[in-house]
Design a protein around this nucleic acid. Structure first.
Length: 433
RNA sequence: GGAGAGAUGGCAGAGUGGUUUAAUGCACACGCCUGGAAAGCGUGAGUGGCUAAAACCCACCGGGGGUUCGAAUCCCCCUCUCUCCGCCA
């Protein structure tokens, strides 16, 4: 959520920055300003009336105490309709506030100045690449073929269980998946200083609202009903990312400055409806309804937000470096960034089987956009309450990492060589047919 | 799922309709006292809004609604916590 004061005092600036996203949200500013103005006017009025009422009520109390009942009754009569006017104005003010906030919640974050302006992914900027595309003396196999040959994933039976877009890892595939989770958690906790947490996989809707997934993108997530009791639909949702529960851990708190920075790291499965996304490029493991991910979350002082962002990208890159994978880091342009983000880097790993790069990580600084929605603050040494920057980044998404791993390290004999850091965890240096 | 109890300021804990628009204690900050400290004494201190800032003022006693001139206090609904029972990994 943007700062209402910023919108109030500098609406043209906000319009301009929003326009760079190409979302067409600029007109909403007018609605916000209108309702905000009405609310403030009503509030001033009703507060004066309340002051009056408080004063008179106190007088009545004093009269009653002195047993001057007749006088008290007279004063009561006088003030009777004051309450009605207050009730009405209170209601109005609340309605204006609701109308204002409803629109506020649908406004995306303002892009940071350093973000290139552009309309779509085509205008993203490659910041750096690491390593070279691996070369093969033969046509490299796709992960689907490799997984089937090596019996790492049973696509057909997964569909039998849950429909398309789900995975059944088997034998070495299951072990490899588990191994990578542990490798990632160990890396980020032992070497990068993150604190491991394991959150619920179901969350209340206010958590989705807190990070900006609600209300605008409500149709993309799985809501849960208990048994056949559909009346409880909407009380809990399957998390689309660990960001949802973990970023909300300290919602509605006022942290001590000394508690910052907070660095969390969590493994969770992620559940995504991906409505309308089915069809293109969906074969295999690249776009699925459930995948594993290790997520990084930071809560930091605003002045440290962008340093922390760069560090977080480096932490995610380290994963791919250790696994011997070729990748590039892309800075998203204004038009391609997520709703809550002010600045985002994607990390894309090379997939020899697809002949293209796959997004395995997205690292964003959401500045205070989410903190406002969550009412998450910290108290400075001078006693001031401020909103911290909240960052999130994948460290990394697993299904696609799995794809890149088996495709990159496939051998001519059909086996897959296991990168060094995983061998001790997995207990083998090679998976063979 | 059933029965009961509860939710008050950082913590503890008073407060069942009006000088309580939150006592008191602990912890906290500052000052006095002291050679220094402890104790003692005094002052202050929560969150949001309003304001250029402040004062004043308004709101906030789990959340929402109601009764009343006036609600932490009475009534209704909801959420959460605790205890016991049932079921259960």
């Amino acid at each position: 959520m943007l700062d209402i004061k910023l919108i109030r005092e500098n609406p043209d600036y906000v319009r301009q920055r929003l326009a760079t996203r190409g979302a067409g949200d600029e007109e909403l500013i007018q609605t916000i300003l209108q309702n905000d103005e009405r609310r403030r006017k009503t509030l001033a009025e009703v507060e004066a009336l309340k002051a009056e009422r408080n004063r008179v009520s106190k007088e009545i109390g004093a009269l009653m105490a002195q047993k001057q009942t007749a006088d008290a009754e007279a004063r009561k009569k006088e003030t009777r309709e004051l309450g009605d006017r207050i009730a009405k104005l209170d209601k109005d003010a609340k309605a204006f506030e609701l109308a204002r906030d409803e629109v506020m919640l649908r406004l995306p974050n303002l892009p940071h100045e350093t973000v290139p302006v552009g309309r779509s992914a085509e205008e993203n900027v490659v910041v750096r690449t690491h390593g070279e595309k691996p070369e093969f003396a033969y046509q490299p196999k796709s992960h689907v073929e490799l997984c089937e040959n090596l019996k790492l994933v049973d696509f057909a039976r997964a569909a039998k269980l849950s429909g398309s877009g789900f995975l059944l890892y088997t034998n070495w595939g299951a072990k490899l998946e588990r191994t990578m989770i542990q490798f990632l958690l160990d890396l980020h906790t032992k070497e990068h200083g993150y604190t491991e947490v394991s959150p619920p996989f179901l969350v209340a809707p206010h958590c989705l609202e807190g990070v900006g997934q609600f209300p605008k993108f409500k149709d993309q997530y799985y809501g849960i009903a208990e048994g056949d009791d559909t009346s409880k639909l909407g009380h809990l949702y399957l998390i689309p990312t660990a960001e949802t529960p973990v970023a909300n851990i300290h919602r509605e708190e006022i942290l001590k400055e000394t508690q910052l920075p907070i660095h969390y790291c969590a493994y969770t499965p992620c559940f995504r409806g991906e409505a309308g996304a089915a069809g293109v490029g969906t074969r295999g493991m690249i776009r699925v309804h459930q995948f594993d991910k290790v997520e990084l979350i930071k809560i930091v002082k605003p002045e440290e937000g962008y340093d922390e962002l760069e560090k977080m990208v480096a932490n995610a890159e380290r994963v791919l470096q250790l696994l011997g994978l070729h990748y590039r880091v892309v800075q998203l342009c204004t038009g391609d960034m997520g709703f809550a983000s002010a600045k985002t880097y994607d990390i894309e790993v090379w997939s020899p089987g697809q002949g293209s790069y796959l997004e395995v990580s997205s690292v964003s600084n959401c500045e205070d956009f989410q903190a406002r929605r969550m009412n998450l603050r910290f108290k400075t040494a001078s006693g001031e309450n401020r909103f911290p920057h909240v960052l999130n980044g994948s460290g990394t998404a697993l299904a696609r990492l799995f794809v890149a791993l088996v495709e990159t390290h496939q051998q001519a004999d059909g086996s897959v060589k296991i990168p060094m850091p995983l061998r001790a965890f997995l207990g083998t240096d090679r998976i063979s047919p």
